[in-house]
Design a protein around this nucleic acid. Structure first.
Length: 803
RNA sequence: GCCCGGGUGGUGGAAUGGCAGACACAAGGGACUUAAAAUCCCUUUCCCUUCGGGGAGUGCGGGUUCGACUCCCGCCCCGGGCACCA
């Protein structure tokens, strides 16, 4: 059999019959399966894509056969720096590069037989799509959720672009691994931090896997503590944030951030201004390059001439600046308790500051006794006046109450998550639809003028000045102010590529709507994404951005639900056969085209499902792939075992068939694709052990295998004269026929397996014990011994305990 | 340092309290064949064995249980993420 020809035949059949079309207006239960739409890179589809697309395809195909109206869409996340860089390198316009790459991806996906509804396809770079991305940005702006601010940004000197904190994780550019520098720039920001609490709470309305939820929680990074006002000798005050108010008597110094506002306020009063200024400048230079590395040796400068007052005992306390305190977290100032915080401890050792132990139990001569060590252990306070001998937990409350009565403390939550830096100085992104007018300031582009199209130009390479290439195009930049008509200039920054992917799943619900980004009716019909699959690397940020975007739209009444994604699952990577990430340089890349050509798409699909635990990384093995080819070949050969005279399902397969239906039906929704394939292999092996099988037996195998290997099963199914599987129903199992009449019970003596007995299901106790005792090997082990106890687990095991 | 995964034969992996190693791969032996491919059969965790079996075994050390890969406590190692967040 020529697999490639058969595959083409059925792919054409599905196309022609609209087999995978999702309908917005039929009376069927909706089911929305989403895989992350890919960035169409120049290297084509990766075998990793094949893994997740096949897994979700199998689910989609089963759900359709179960009677659902399944939406399984595909599109392209084509904006962003990688597309631009590819275009620059290959000297073609990004638009052309993207079109070319999409064609390749689409051709590859078609040869794999994925059941996408291609009628809903779009690219984030389509003006019809980014029009609505821009429109939604205007909603953010209208609702005071977008603002421009001068911020220290991560700047990649190689990509010549601003990076979000997320893109600059670890102090290096995510794309090119160049060390990131700091630059102060005017940037569009989205007030994502104001959604921190909602993004945490919203997780309760989702069915994300625990590890995904945890990723979100950690990224948001909530900590609850107390904001405390600290007075300065001679007037004035500043606030600190602490989660350990119980250590308040252990304060021996304060530290404020060199990059915060507070130091600017205090500087005029300091005696050693030059020394402080010098340190501030040093911090700016090294920030993010060296600050990402944890420093054992703390540096800092004491602020001479200014002392703080301890909030309770009114002692005078020195103030330092040090770069271990961050200007943009909490209040940018901390109370330092060296006895109970390792960072403070190191700082105190370096600068010879007192260390006062206030919680008993540690050894502060060696290191700080930190909250991780003392919390919930019943530790008590010392050196804390009226609070001595209280437990930490009691003291937390009592001390807070006292400070609150004094009017200087209140509870506060802080989050690691910051506002979203939304500007990129790039050509290949959605233009931010704003105009700066010398009279009116920032003015929104009018909705009727959307989309603000990217100009068709030849010069799209990044500039050295850090401006977007768009800034060089006068005829594009210069425009009239929509408010007053004066000469004005367009914003030349573009959006990050996270923008288009933050709402694409909504567009899939209603992709051709030219009045709205998606109609409320369509969104209400589909309700939500039932099943969202993507890589682990996107479970923190992309998912957070998307949830933020949706929650905002919900709050302004534009989407029906606050969380539009119900289940999120993530797949493991396919590694090279050397167990390393596939990469050109390592020479371990497997091209799906080659595999399909040699083994067929069904074999590739089957293998990638069989390769291992779906959520774990797995190394590629061409040998194992051949095993799946053999399995497919075996299924083909089994056709010759059909005896047309046999009617109905064969009695001898009754149990294995019902078990297999149950297993596949469950495995496909439990991410247990590998055991689903194995169950099908077992069923085939059972058939193969017999001389003949019935037409129905064979049809069942084809139907169950169809979601994973759709082409060959359709072909075989047609050959034996059935109507197409894609138009058939998913089989149901009979739960009364999942076990044999006669079952095997294992017999143990003292927990050690000694033999088996065969009995009827639910045989009575006495009979089981009798049979078990008669078992040859068991007899030996209980002979001349007193049986102290008999443990019977129905239909499973019997265990004799002897002396 | 913190958080999340993971550790089971030569390999990928099954088994989530009840015969560890399902299902495959690889390897070895055999059948068919002039030969090859394809296919089929057998062996394949380790040690002992009188071939009936017996003992050990799921990273290490304890514990709970009649019974633990599975649950609990304490470690070790590998992978990934975050990283001076007060």
């Amino acid at each position: 059999m020529n697999y490639n020809e058969i595959e083409k035949k059925w792919q054409d059949y599905w196309d022609k019959h609209n087999s995978f079309k999702a309908y917005n207006d039929i009376d069927k239960k909706p089911y929305y399966i989403l895989v992350e739409f890919p960035y169409p890179s120049g290297t084509g589809l990766h075998v990793g894509h094949v893994r997740s697309y096949t897994a979700q395809d199998a689910l989609a195909r089963m759900k359709r056969m179960q009677g659902y109206n399944v939406l399984y869409p595909m599109g392209w996340d084509s904006f962003g720096a990688p597309a631009e860089q590819y275009a620059v390198q290959n000297r073609i316009h990004p638009k052309d590069a993207v079109r070319e790459n999409i064609n390749t991806f689409k051709r590859q996906m078609k040869t794999l037989g994925f059941s996408f509804d291609w009628d809903r396809e779009f690219s984030t770079t389509d003006p019809d799509y980014y029009k609505w991305t821009q429109w939604q940005f205007l909603q953010f702006y209208k609702h005071n959720m977008a603002y421009k601010a001068s911020v220290n940004v991560n700047w990649c000197p190689k990509c010549k672009s601003v990076l979000s904190n997320e893109d600059a994780a670890g102090g290096v550019c995510e794309r090119c691994s160049t060390k990131v520098e700091q630059k102060r720039k005017n940037q569009w920001m989205l007030r994502m931090s104001s959604y921190a609490e909602d993004l945490l709470n919203g997780l309760d309305d989702t069915n994300f896997a625990d590890r995904v939820k945890l990723g979100q929680i950690n990224w948001i990074g909530k900590s609850s503590g107390i904001k405390l006002k600290i007075d300065i000798v001679g007037g004035g005050s500043f606030d600190i944030f602490t989660t350990c108010i119980e250590t308040v008597y252990g304060i021996t110094f304060f530290v404020i951030a060199p990059d915060g506002k507070l130091i600017e306020e205090l500087l005029p009063r300091a005696q050693n201004k030059d020394e402080i200024k010098k340190y501030i400048n040093e911090t700016k230079l090294k920030s993010n390059m060296d600050r990402t590395e944890f420093q054992d040796n703390k540096t800092g400068v004491i602020i001479k001439g200014i002392k703080a007052i301890h909030p309770i005992n009114k002692r005078e306390i020195p103030i330092f600046i040090s770069d271990f305190v961050l200007g943009d977290y909490g209040t940018g100032a901390v109370m330092a308790v060296p006895a109970h915080d390792q960072r403070d401890y190191e700082f105190a050792k370096t600068y010879n500051i007192d260390i006062i132990e206030v919680i008993k139990g540690g050894n502060i001569n060696e290191k700080a006794y930190e909250k991780e060590d003392y919390l919930e252990k019943g530790c008590i306070l010392i050196n804390s006046e009226e609070f001595n001998n209280l437990t930490v937990e009691e003291a937390k409350e009592k001390i807070y109450e006292k400070l609150k009565k004094m009017g200087i403390a209140e509870k506060e939550d802080n989050y690691k998550m910051r506002d979203w830096i939304f500007s990129r100085q790039r050509f290949w992104g959605e233009p931010i639809p704003m105009i700066e007018c010398p009279k009116c300031g920032w003015v929104m582009v009018e909705e009727k003028d959307l989309p603000v199209l990217l100009p068709d130009i030849a010069e799209y390479e990044p500039t050295d000045t850090g401006e977007s290439p768009l800034a060089k195009i006068d005829e594009w930049v210069n425009c009239k102010c929509p408010k007053c008509g004066a000469n004005a200039k367009r914003e030349t920054d573009t959006m990050p590529n996270w923008a288009g992917s933050s709402w694409y799943f909504l567009r899939f619900m209603d992709p051709h709507n030219d009045k709205e980004f998606a109609s409320m009716d369509a969104m209400k019909y589909w309700k939500q994404v039932d099943w969202y699959n993507g890589g682990m690397e996107h479970t923190a940020r992309h998912l957070l951005y998307a949830r933020f975007w949706v929650q905002f739209l919900y709050n302004i009444g534009l989407v029906p639900k606050k969380e539009m994604i119900w289940t999120r699952v993530s797949h493991g990577m396919i590694l090279g056969s050397n167990n390393e990430k596939m990469s050109k340089s390592k020479g371990n890349v497997v091209n799906p085209d080659d595999i399909i050509k040699e083994y067929g798409a069904d074999t590739l699909r089957c293998y990638e499902m069989f390769i291992g635990d779906y959520q774990m990384d797995a190394p590629w093995s061409t040998e194992s792939l051949r095993g799946c080819k053999r399995f497919i070949d075996k299924v083909v050969r089994l056709k010759d075992k059909i005896n047309p005279n046999l009617k109905g399902y064969s009695k001898k397969f009754e149990v294995i068939q019902n078990k297999t239906i149950k297993k596949i039906t469950e495995d496909l929704v439990n991410l247990s694709y590998n055991t689903a394939v194995s169950a099908l292999m077992i069923l085939s092996n059972n058939y193969d052990d017999e001389k003949e099988i019935s037409h129905e037996d064979y049809t069942l195998l084809l139907t169950l295998l169809n979601p994973i290997a759709p082409h060959i099963t359709e072909e075989l199914n047609e050959i034996i004269g059935n109507k197409p599987i894609v138009e058939s129903l998913w089989p149901k199992y009979d739960k009364n026929k999942l076990t044999e009449d006669e079952i095997t019970i294992s017999v143990s003596v003292n927990g050690k397996f000694r033999g088996v007995i065969k009995t009827k299901v639910d045989e009575n106790k006495e009979q089981i014990i009798k049979l078990a005792k008669e078992c040859e090997n068991v007899k030996k082990h209980i002979a001349n011994k007193k049986i102290k106890k008999e443990i019977i687990v129905p239909n499973k095991i019997i265990n004799f305990i002897v002396e």
